[in-house]
Design a protein around this nucleic acid. Structure first.
Length: 338
DNA sequence: AGCACA
């Protein structure tokens, strides 16, 4: 009788410090939520993000503080960057500020939660939400390498960017065939969206997309055909990017254009923003829209008082420094996550 | 000149 193989004994021994890679900070700290935000909103905001494991909303007085734990530090940083300057609620001018937390969110082990804690402090993990129907709808991921825990998110094989619905489309880039002078018509105040007119009847959406999607800050566009007239709306991530394209591609001639250069104007309504009701007067809505647009533009670089702004004809006042500085000031001091 | 979507 031989003694049992020695390696059997190893089966019960824990791996030697296999989780040292988890002492890195992989938790983000998010400020800027409106006071009435619910913890569930943070969960629903983040549960799609690759590597999301758990989140928690704490309240310091009226100031909500969100914490979210991710599988790796890199995933946390990616989520942090995705949330950075996100307009969480344009009604309340809530713009998120995200940074890496000082320490990791403590996640209670074990599946069932006692539910006896303060509901505002209770932890919820992604376990209940990562339903199979959401995992890789187009690409089947073989279960060869099982992931651990109830919070495993399996990203599709193609890069999945939950907040990248505005990502650059895969179309061949298009450069203007030339430029033609465009008579400077009355324009609207600068915003993050452009209205493109004077397009040729044969101009295709693919051609327009090839031109605009390669412009810095491009988010999305929509082409409208109405008879012989084609117009296009193009949204950018910030007002400055839109202003640059407004300037640089003004009068651009496409190969399919048969009526000179395109006319680029700021639209009556920016993307995703309905005009205020006619009841309260235009001047109030103008300033309101300006603030909202600037918030949409993330205020990374406030548009300088350049020539493009000077084209405004005095139809609307240029956003003042007071407006520019009216972004929500958020304290960056950071309490402990737990 | 033609301004949608929410």
């Amino acid at each position: 009788m031989a003694a049992p193989p020695a390696q059997f004994a190893q089966w019960s021994t824990p791996a030697p410090s296999a989780d040292t890679s988890h002492d890195e900070v992989r938790t983000i700290f998010v400020l800027g939520f409106p006071p009435d935000v619910k913890e569930r909103e943070l969960q629903n905001l983040l549960r799609w993000w690759p590597g999301y494991e758990a989140s928690q909303m704490n309240f310091k007085g009226d100031q909500p503080m969100g914490f979210a734990l991710f599988s790796t530090s890199a995933m946390a940083m990616a989520a942090r960057d995705a949330l950075q300057n996100l307009v969480f609620d344009s009604e309340t001018n809530s713009v998120l500020r995200a940074e890496m937390a000082k320490k990791n969110l403590y996640v209670k082990r074990g599946g069932s939660e006692p539910a006896t804690y303060d509901p505002s402090k209770r932890m919820r993990t992604a376990g209940d939400y990562t339903a199979p129907q959401y995992a890789a709808p187009s690409a089947f991921v073989p279960p060869a390498a099982p992931t651990w825990g109830p919070q495993s998110y399996i990203p599709p094989s193609a890069p999945y960017d939950p907040y990248g619905g505005y990502s650059v489309a895969q179309v061949p880039p298009v450069a203007p065939a030339g430029y033609a002078p465009v008579q400077n018509t009355k324009d609207n105040p600068p915003c993050n969206t452009l209205f493109i007119g004077n397009l040729g009847e044969a101009t295709s959406e693919a051609e327009l997309r090839g031109l605009f999607s390669s412009q810095p800050g491009f988010r999305q566009m929509k082409v409208l055909r109405q008879g012989k007239s084609t117009v296009c709306f193009t949204e950018f991530g910030d007002v400055s990017s839109a202003m640059a394209v407004h300037q640089n591609l003004q009068g651009a001639v496409l190969t399919t254009s048969d009526r000179g250069g395109m006319r680029i104007q700021y639209p009556l309504n920016p993307y995703g923003r309905k005009r205020e009701g006619t009841g309260s007067g235009p001047q109030q809505s103008d300033s309101l829209v300006a603030v909202t647009q600037l918030n949409q533009g993330k205020l990374e670089t406030p548009p300088p008082p350049s020539a493009s702004v000077a084209e405004l004809n005095g139809t609307s006042e240029v956003p003042s420094a007071a407006v520019l500085s009216s972004t929500p000031v958020i304290k960056t001091e950071q309490p402990q996550a737990v």
